[in-house]
């Protein structure tokens, strides 16, 4: 099912007018060309996201113009903007409510790290503390081209996902979780401050 086809054999057959494909390629081809995003925006990055969906940049070219108002029908969560600590539990809950396979694009400096408001008392320092992020886009805000680039990167990731074998995609792995714990409001901060299963920042080693 997920076996790779030899490239030489494939081009040889193509020259004879025979087109060969595999289940995995068909499945991924369909998935990557119909990524439906969840319709929500958090801050100014959402304006750029709206511009990406409008006619000038036209995300419909990538099959992703169908912004869904319900997480039940969405494949992709675009975290566009500053995630406040008040909003973070709702974001995680929406992520939990999306069906597998699901992907996350963290759009803009705030969503990936807290951005210019990092020192703020009520700003989450990156949504990747609670949910797994597939593509990060820096920028304040990123231009629509950057979001389109993130889309193409996500399409490339989907295209390379395996249907079987030890490296198969997470959503086909029975043991891989589909929901992540929703943080709660504590006395001073969200509890827990990060989900250690998801958030593994690089450790700085001083020598």
């Amino acid at each position: 099912m997920g076996d790779e086809i030899d490239e030489g054999l494939r081009s040889e057959l193509q020259r004879q007018g025979i087109w060969v494909t595999s289940m995995q390629e068909l499945y991924n081809w369909g998935r990557k060309n119909s990524i439906w995003p969840l319709q929500f925006g958090l801050a100014c990055c959402a304006i750029e996201m709206i511009a990406t969906a409008a006619s000038r940049y036209d995300i419909a070219r990538f099959g992703a113009e169908v912004f869904r108002p319900s997480p039940r029908q969405a494949d992709l969560m675009i975290v566009a903007g500053t995630v406040t600590k008040k909003m973070a539990p709702q974001i995680v809950r929406l992520y939990n409510q999306m069906p597998d396979p699901k992907y996350v694009i963290a759009m803009g400096a705030c969503a990936i790290s807290g951005g210019p408001f990092k020192q703020g008392y009520n700003v989450l320092k990156g949504i990747d503390r609670y949910i797994p992020v597939d593509v990060y886009i820096p920028g304040c805000p990123p231009r629509p081209e950057a979001l389109l680039h993130a889309f193409m990167e996500l399409q490339r990731k989907i295209d390379n996902q395996k249907l079987s074998g030890p490296n198969k995609s997470d959503h086909l792995d029975r043991e891989h979780p589909s929901e992540y714990p929703v943080p709660a409001f504590g006395k001073h901060d969200l509890v827990p401050r990060a989900n250690p299963d998801v958030f593994r920042p690089p450790q700085i080693e001083r020598v």
């Binding site: 319900s70 997480p71 039940r72 539990p89 709702q90 974001i91 809950r93 929406l94 939990n96 409510q97 069906p99 597998d100 959503h171 086909l172 792995d173 029975r174 979780p177 589909s178 929901e179 929703v182």
Partner: peptide, 16 residues
């Protein structure tokens, strides 16, 4: 595709 139901996933949708 293995089904992965859960408490939040099966809950009524109320915008998060």
């Amino acid at each position: 595709q293995p089904p992965k139901p859960g408490a939040a996933k099966n809950a009524t949708y109320e915008c998060g």
